[in-house]
Write a protein that binds this DNA or RNA. Structure first.
Lengths: 110, 110
DNA sequence: TATTAAGATTGCAATATTACGATAAAGATT
DNA sequence: AATCTTTATCGTAATATTGCAATCTTAATA
């Protein structure tokens, strides 16, 4: 095995899992935080920020892009990356909703 | 390789990555949502809710527990599971902060 | 005390992820 | 055109994850 049985779950559950999984590696969290820190999109430079080899970083960027967490646009011979707010809004919304619900039913048990 | 180089990243980045990774599988998202939906801690019953075999569910529960997302207490011969709010608060806080920051620096590029 | 029931653990096969060296692709620079 | 720079891709090794059948553990119950 080793393959996730996505077909048994709802689209929403799969969507959240995909986003969460993309952030499930510290290098990718670090990339997101770096893109946040600098005020603009970043062309180049990301590789130098991380303690990983260039192909590894490239791979992580690809995964973030596939998950929809970042966007990349070609800028001459470099590539500009920035955060895709839509995906982060989805996550923020999801956890806000959950926290809200938990707040309301506090101390029902445990 | 195959092993994440956690030592190169900050504790906070690793902590977020660990939580996110735990939610990076639709079955685990489904478990969390089920625990939310029912109003109390749940003893038993979780296996029947999921389209996966008992050992698989048990493993997913273990991972959620290791990540700190749920708590489990022994209740006779069954086990009561419920959400650990602290972990969810951490996630909610994190994404709220990020969304906030993104709001402020909107349209700087791209 | 045998039996049942709920969960965990073990062991294994299939697949995925992580990491990187080598190399390729494509625009910029000389 | 030759070279440099930046990023992607390929190939591969090491490790992790997913899923389940079989089995074990522990407590409840007959």
């Amino acid at each position: 095995m080793g393959a996730t049985k996505t077909e048994h779950f709802t689209d929403k559950q799969n969507a959240i899992a995909t986003l969460a999984k993309a952030l499930g590696h510290p290098a990718r969290v670090a990339i997101m935080e770096y893109l946040m820190k600098v005020d603009t999109c970043i062309c180049g430079d990301i590789v130098n920020e991380l303690p990983l080899a260039q192909p590894t970083v490239s791979q992580h960027l690809k995964e973030l892009k596939n998950a929809g967490l970042i966007k990349g646009s070609i800028e001459g011979n470099a590539i500009c990356y920035c955060i895709d707010e839509k995906a982060l809004d989805k996550l923020q919304n999801y956890f806000a909703k959950i926290s809200d619900r938990l707040e309301k039913k506090k101390s029902n048990c445990c």
